[in-house]
Design a protein around this nucleic acid. Sequence first.
DNA 1: CCCAAATCAGTAATGATTACTATTTTATTA
DNA 2: TAATAAAATAGTAATCATTACTGATTTGGG
Lengths: 127, 127
Amino acid sequence: MKKYSRQREAILDVLCSTDTHPTANWVYDRVRETIPNISLGTVYRNLSALSEEGRVISVSVGDGYEHFDGNDSLHAHFYCKKCGKITDVALENDYLAEAIRKNGFTPDSSVYIVRGVCGECNAKEKN
Amino acid sequence: MKKYSRQREAILDVLCSTDTHPTANWVYDRVRETIPNISLGTVYRNLSALSEEGRVISVSVGDGYEHFDGNDSLHAHFYCKKCGKITDVALENDYLAEAIRKNGFTPDSSVYIVRGVCGECNAKEKN
DNA sequence: CCCAAATCAGTAATGATTACTATTTTATTA
DNA sequence: TAATAAAATAGTAATCATTACTGATTTGGG
């Protein structure tokens, strides 16, 4: 049976109070402000549990780290290859999950990642 | 300047002649049938280069491995949490890249991943 | 053919993530 | 509220997919 834990709650809080897409280590640093002796393993274990439950999304953009996202609204992620920034882009309808469903699958969470170069980096390029 | 390499060509061939989503190691094993002394590092380097060029897509489903996909048609990936199988689901329109573009970004490649349980595993569940 | 840049094979190193264990916390039952 | 079992934790050690390094080989332009 799943039990409450102060650590898990704190981790979820940190994730839900940022619009960035932090790594486990970043979350670790933030949670330590509240629970100084929390262990990095605890952060990993809970991020993984929260992700399994679907309360959090795990986003892999290919920079060598797993990123986590507590934003539960429907959105896609734009990853800029130049600056590494991940930006949320809101979506109106979940066309893809719909298409998946039509093909006989039962989806429970989605990660949409688009790679490219962001406007800011494109501008810099022209110098 | 980018130069031709027999190794890179063989790696791309392997990726384009399967509808699975292999890991670097699987590709390595397959390419060794043709080029027995190819190095695993070479496979990694070229997969990464091909992915950078957009000739190949890198798909992270959260099983601890990076998966690669040589299928260049527009599709989403359904990842079954139970059996680990990754299935391609064809898409008609790239709504998401479109939404991204409307937000001022310049996309160049997309990875759409939907997690859930596949029909087969759902059926097994009921026994 | 010659040269410089690119790529390679083989091997060593890295570091994000996971596993392990003794201890602490949680929730249930009496 | 005390006793108890299951779940979770802190701290540390281990794993292993991926990357970095190096000296040899290949590629392509002049």
